[in-house]
Design a protein around this nucleic acid. Structure first.
Length: 537
RNA sequence: CCCCUCGUAGCUUAAUGGAUAAAGUGCUGGUCUUCGGAACCAGUGAUGCGGGUUCGAUUCCUGCCGAGGGGGCCA
């Protein structure tokens, strides 16, 4: 629907302007455009006059096919009211498309990689990992729905100093002494202190003792175990899907991608030596300082290895990558974007999800892997329903610092908006069941659908593809959860005010079709969000 | 000290520079001889503080206050 209006505007406006067509609040019509403002700026005329002129042209062009009313209002908006029969036709289109309703070919089958979670295998998942997990999962769903070929990647940092550190942490946790060399390495870098370290060490006492002088081997072993547990939580508990677990050691390090990346950096003339180390000129790309690629004792840094990882992605045919990182990576964005650009990744996005501040009865609870005392993602999923957690986390923009009160969430779990949405689906299903609907007849006339509630509901249904399109473009996933609440509200309102099954089992066929369409859209939406669409609650 | 993000109803959050700042929750009052009341309706109530940019600023720039995160051979 929005697209149709955009097309009409294009015909009327001679030069290209960035005009928007949107659904306005309150009684400003079904759709609105600010086109007049955009033109006014370059024409130096009053927006209101331009709007009046445009509105006349639109009416002439349309000849009463689409619009019931086209009006201009202060200070220069053009508002559109759509004809009832146009809305009614849309309902049939929705039924025809069914489970495909909302899909588009926006992505043109291009490959895109969504990398998310990628937590270090040195401990359990945090709430921030969970937030990124839900975000990545749903974003990947939306992109796939919009015609992209999506790879969902989890990058496992399974080699390097952190693995040694993990081994050392386990050894120390059992009160064993580290070897001379490890003692030195331990200095200046804090070990992992969490309770989970102690628990694991005690549980695997024999293994820790056996490898007490070989922390790398011990660390690798433990990391594998931690990863196994992480996979269990992600896949089984959180219903988050991945199709590639990329190993830093096997896929990147062994295949010499860091070296290859370094060669490309050198060829680009962006590498220099200083104080015995090798640096990349990331300042040229907006970073506040240059970054080390090779240390003075010729070790590759985390940054160089990650560059290797990006290069591998490019070499596997991806021109587009979205990387979802936690809040501790803020300082990292500029340099990785610089590397991406040099390595030839055309469309690179880094999304930083903000931390979730956990409150317990209004009191802050510190969450840090080092502190030892923190609530893990798995803990949270034990406390609250998965659908609730998903919806709640996805309801807010990823750069909002979410305050999450655990005790409140548990308490008010029944009033969570996710149940509101699911309940709308249950109600729709219940009507269909009672009416014993089998096949939808295309012959049914939809003329009776003209009350405020009918039209409002159709209007929301028609918005669905528009919301998907917006989210696929700007990755703002909370558009979907917000929309879900609005759609459910329109349905509940419709349900309260309009009867489908009249007295005496007389069924209003037109309304029944509208219910079927609503049910379809709600289901498509819930599937994208990874939330269950129950027939009963 | 420097960098990044954020500050909106009592609480949790929306709003590519646009119309009367939008929802949920809370509180107050109301609806129904119901296709499942986990529903519906009404009322209540907000842009941290001070400047600037312009037709118009929650949004952009700047100073202050406050919260969180980060700060070269580390991950």
């Amino acid at each position: 629907m929005r697209q149709q209006i955009v097309q009409i505007l294009k015909k009327i406006i001679p030069f290209s302007v960035k005009a928007e067509v949107f659904s306005p609040a309150q009684n400003f019509g079904h759709y609105s455009t600010n086109a007049a403002f955009k033109i006014a700026a370059s024409l130096k005329k009053k927006p209101l006059e331009i709007a009046k002129d445009l509105a006349e042209k639109i009416k002439k062009l349309d000849k009463g096919k689409l619009f019931k009313r086209v009006e201009v209002s202060q200070p220069g908006f053009i508002n559109f009211w759509i004809l009832e029969n146009v809305w009614q036709t849309k309902v049939k289109e929705i039924l025809k498309e069914g489970a495909h309703y909302g899909k588009s070919k926006l992505g043109k089958n291009k490959k895109v990689q969504v990398e998310f979670i990628s937590a270090n295998p040195t401990g359990p998942l945090t709430l921030a990992n969970g937030r990124g997990g839900f975000l990545g999962d749903v974003l990947a769903n939306i992109l796939a729905f919009s015609g992209f070929k999506v790879e969902r990647e989890y990058y496992v940092n399974d080699t390097g100093n952190q693995i040694i550190k993990l081994g050392n942490s386990l050894i120390v946790a059992l009160g064993l002494n580290l070897g001379q060399q490890q003692q030195e390495e331990k200095r200046g870098d804090k070990l992992y202190q969490g309770l989970y370290i102690k628990d694991w060490a005690r549980k695997h006492r024999g293994v820790v003792k056996k490898y007490k002088s070989e922390p790398l081997i011990l660390g690798r072993f433990a990391a594998k175990e931690f990863l196994k547990n992480t996979k269990r939580v992600i896949i089984q508990k959180a219903r988050i899907k991945f199709n590639r677990f990329t190993s830093e050691f096997n896929h990147i390090y062994k295949k010499k991608y860091p070296e290859k990346a370094l060669a490309i950096f050198k060829k680009a003339g962006l590498v220099y030596e200083k104080e015995g180390a090798i640096w990349l000129k990331t300042v040229k790309f907006g970073d506040d300082k240059d970054r080390v690629l090779l240390t003075s004792d010729c070790q590759s840094t985390y940054f160089l290895n990650d560059s290797g990882h990006y290069l591998e992605t490019v070499r596997r045919g991806f021109n587009k990558k979205i990387n979802i990182l936690g809040p501790d990576h803020y300082g990292y964005v500029k340099r990785i974007q610089a590397a991406a650009k040099i390595l030839g990744l055309k469309d690179s996005t880094v999304i930083i999800t903000q931390a979730i501040r956990l409150l317990e009865k209004g009191q802050g609870v510190k969450m840090s892997k080092r502190m030892g005392k923190f609530v893990t993602f798995e803990d949270l999923l034990k406390e609250i329903n998965l659908d609730v957690a998903r919806f709640f986390f996805l309801m807010v923009s990823s750069d909002s610092h979410l305050d999450f009160d655990l005790s409140l969430a548990k308490e008010k779990t029944l009033k969570n908006p996710v149940y509101y949405v699911q309940y709308a689906y249950v109600r729709s299903w219940s009507i269909l069941k009672k009416a014993k609907i089998k096949t939808i007849s295309v012959k049914v006339k939809l003329d009776p659908l003209k009350t405020f509630e009918d039209i409002k509901l159709i209007q929301e249904l028609v918005k669905f593809p528009e919301i998907i399109e917006d989210a696929a473009g700007d990755y703002q996933i909370h558009r979907l959860t917000r929309y879900a609440t609005e759609l459910a509200k329109a349905f509940h309102n419709f349900y309260e005010k309009e009867r489908v099954i009249e007295k005496g089992d007389d069924i209003n066929q037109a309304r029944l079709i509208l219910v079927k369409a609503s049910s379809l859209v709600l289901k498509n939406l819930l599937i994208l969000l990874g939330i269950k669409a129950p027939k009963k609650m």
